[in-house]
Design a protein around this nucleic acid. Structure first.
Length: 659
RNA sequence: GCCGGAGUAGCUCAGUGGCAGAGCAAUCGCCUCGUAAGCGAUAGGUCGCGGGUUCAAUCCCCGCCUCCGGCUCCA
């Protein structure tokens, strides 16, 4: 730097490279001098929080630039865009009270207390106003204020006052922390053009330097949300939006949203004639049509076989039970709001079951158990009923009646760790067989409110951790997120378009063995309590099916497809030949249709393509003469003149490999 | 459950205060065809349900039901 001669200099590290800068230079200036132009914020000295580009580094600071095209950078961008949105709302709806407006995955929101909910037209006007604000190149300027100054500034903003009080008391939650840093200092960001302050918000920051750094955004939808997330609090009007580092990135995100809509399992369920939710039966209660029923049966059969190979014992239990069982288990005390109400017969109350565990425990208890029998692995496709609030139902992934692939494993304390390890490996292997390959696990530890002995918790948590380490699956610690009766591993999967779904859960239970007074006879004649592991692998068949359907966009792999092969005659005279081919394929266990409709071949191809059938076998004169068929694959590729035996072998190979 | 939105043919959706429409699907007929939609005809509706306003309501108003987007909750 040329001015270094007359100005005191400071030594900095910028993105691990040493640099010299003039004292008093902003982070933005030193980054620019170092050739870094894509940053929206910086991290200083490996601190957790980020700083504005207007921050003044001092000698010896290590600076990490945060480019906009990173998750942290986008969060800064989205947070700033949320401010612009709040400013636009304030411009258009004077008197609006602001709550909070944090960045979230893929976007941002801001909650407002307004006279009436926003309409679609309001949102258009807000977005237009935002574009004007962005075009005016407003700056985001940070200033530190005292708690009293903040109270005065936001005297007419009751939600901000609450955040200020929470911040000064040091008790903010994560979302609110975005608006005011805990305890330390209270900061305000002024949005200004030249010296004119257009709008100010209580905010921890950081923010982009000015609105020229907001290249692409879109408002997406409005919704109601409770203040501080509690249904006892007033409902606020929330606007969701998204912001990206470029128009291209925004377009790509919008394309992904459209893709997700296209893959919606509820839409595919109707289009492919798999299942439906007749309103005559009631919300959240599915009926499975023949084609959906085939897929479900194949899934269950495969799972059953794998469980048998892994040493599980199949059990069957009823759908309803007397209240007493659920009193012993504690469900009536803890879970009654999630249960269907009881029905009374001969003066006794019976409940539809919300979970299978108490029933499996009674099987364990049906006679004395020896350590020689352990681990005892009970498995059931157990159908349960839970009364979900009407607003939360969502196709097959959130239903009121569903079938869990539920198992309960009873083992000795010594067996626990080994059992968990093989169990987790089993879970991951089976998910892979269904084509899900990206896993992320969470180890959820003891919550503030818990039952049992801390030592037991530590042992069980350690066993779960050992299982995670042994299988090598990536996991994060979810401190305090365990169930009140047990630590657990939750396995999440990423689907084909990157969405995260919670799938399997493994829990080590401290409650039930004691509540039901379970025991086994040990080799030394003592009668210790067994350990108990709860495990749902798919979670529920319905939910898993829905996720698979979205993962594959309806084009299920051949082994799961309801129709694996559609035979298409080119002309009516080829029907008889293809009927013979179809018989051969069926004899080999394949699910085959022959399209005998009075349509042209092209039309039949369209239909089979819409039905997402993996293999079309087409036959005309040339194929008949050669005792061959012609393939058309789901991809649109084709292969002509394949001898029937070869075609059968090829299809069987794909089906059996579950590819 | 709460806030907002939407309900028109099996599906996707137009439409208007004055006899209810399209495409696809379905049925029937003609065509017999070599890799993404052949031609014609027919049928299909209490315009979610109930009430109100009006000479007249699918349309405007009110209530309810169902679904959708969120919130809370959750497999």
């Amino acid at each position: 730097m040329s001015e270094a001669r007359s100005t005191p200099v400071i030594r900095l590290t910028i993105d691990r490279q040493p640099h010299v800068a003039a004292q008093g230079a902003t982070a933005r200036q030193v980054l620019a001098a170092a050739g870094v132009t894509d940053a929206v914020a910086v991290r200083a000295n490996q601190e957790e929080g980020l700083r504005d580009l207007s921050w003044l580094p001092t000698d010896g600071d290590r600076i990490e630039s945060i480019p906009v095209a990173t998750e942290e950078g986008r969060a800064v961008l989205r947070h700033s865009t949320a401010h612009v949105m709040a400013q636009a709302v304030t411009d258009l709806f004077p008197g609006t009270k602001w709550a909070i407006g944090p960045p979230i995955e893929n976007g941002f929101y801001y909650d407002f207390d307004v006279e009436r909910p926003f309409t679609a037209e309001d949102v258009e006007r807000i977005e237009a106003r935002m574009r004007a604000i962005v075009a005016s190149r407003q700056r985001f300027k940070r200033r530190v204020v005292s708690a009293d100054e903040a109270r005065a500034l936001f005297a007419d903003q009751p939600y901000k006052l609450e955040v200020i009080e929470a911040a000064t008391a040091g008790s903010v939650d994560d979302d609110e922390a975005v608006d005011a840093g805990p305890g330390t200092e209270i900061t305000v960001y002024d949005n200004s053009v030249n010296t004119h302050v257009a709008w100010s918000d209580l905010c921890r920051g950081p923010h982009v330097p000015d609105t020229a750094h907001i290249p692409a955004f879109r408002l997406l939808r409005t919704a109601a949300a409770y203040w501080r997330g509690s249904e006892r609090n007033p409902q606020l009007q929330r606007i969701y939006g998204t912001a990206w580092e470029s128009e291209e990135a925004l377009e790509e995100h919008l394309r992904l949203l459209a893709e997700a809509e296209r893959r919606d399992h509820r839409r595919l369920g109707t289009e492919l004639d798999l299942f439906s939710f007749p309103s005559e039966i009631g919300g959240g209660l599915a009926v499975w049509h023949p084609k959906g029923g085939i897929v479900r049966r194949v899934m269950e059969e495969y799972s059953r076989r794998r469980h048998e190979e892994a040493g599980y014992s199949f059990v069957v239990t009823p759908h309803i039970t007397k209240a007493a069982l659920l009193e012993t288990s504690g469900h009536l005390q803890w879970y009654s709001q999630g249960m269907y109400p009881p029905m009374e017969m001969e003066g006794v109350r019976y409940y539809p079951k919300p979970m299978n565990c108490p029933f499996h425990i009674l099987i364990y208890k049906s006679r004395g158990r020896s350590y020689r029998e352990l681990p005892l692995r009970l498995f059931e496709f157990g159908t349960v009923y839970r009364f979900e609030k009407s607003g939360v139902l969502h196709g097959l992934t959130r239903a009121r009646g569903f079938t869990q692939d539920d198992s309960h494993i009873f083992c000795t304390p010594d067996q626990l760790e080994g059992e968990l390890t093989t169990l987790l490996q089993f879970v991951l292997d089976l998910l892979r067989d269904f084509g899900l390959t990206e896993f992320e696990a969470e180890l959820a530890t003891r919550p503030d409110k818990f039952v049992g002995e801390p030592d037991d918790w530590d042992d069980a948590t350690q066993a779960l951790r050992a299982a995670l380490e042994a299988t090598g699956v990536a996991y994060v610690l979810a401190e305090g997120e365990g169930a009140f009766y047990a630590p657990k591993i939750d396995v999440h999967v990423r689907d084909a378009i990157g969405r995260r779904w919670q799938m399997s859960t493994l829990q080590v239970d401290f409650q039930f063995p004691g509540r039901f007074d379970l025991e086994y006879q040990a080799a030394d004649g003592s009668r210790p309590r067994p350990r108990m592991i709860h495990r749902a692998l798919f979670g529920s068949i319905e939910r898993f099916f829905g996720i698979l359907l979205e993962h594959y966009a309806g084009a299920l792999p051949a082994w799961l497809s309801p129709v694996q092969v559609t035979c298409i005659p080119i002309a009516e005279r080829h029907v008889g030949y293809l009927a013979g081919v179809a018989d051969q394929l069926r004899a080999a266990g394949l699910r085959v249709d022959v399209d005998t409709s009075d349509e042209r071949m092209q039309k039949k191809i369209v239909r089979a393509q819409h039905e997402k059938v993996p293999f079309m076998l087409i036959a005309g004169d040339r194929d008949v003469a050669a005792e061959a068929v012609s393939f058309r694959y789901r991809s649109g590729e084709e292969k002509r003149g394949v001898p029937v035996g070869d075609a059968l072998a090829e299809i069987l190979q794909v089906v059996e490999s579950r590819a």
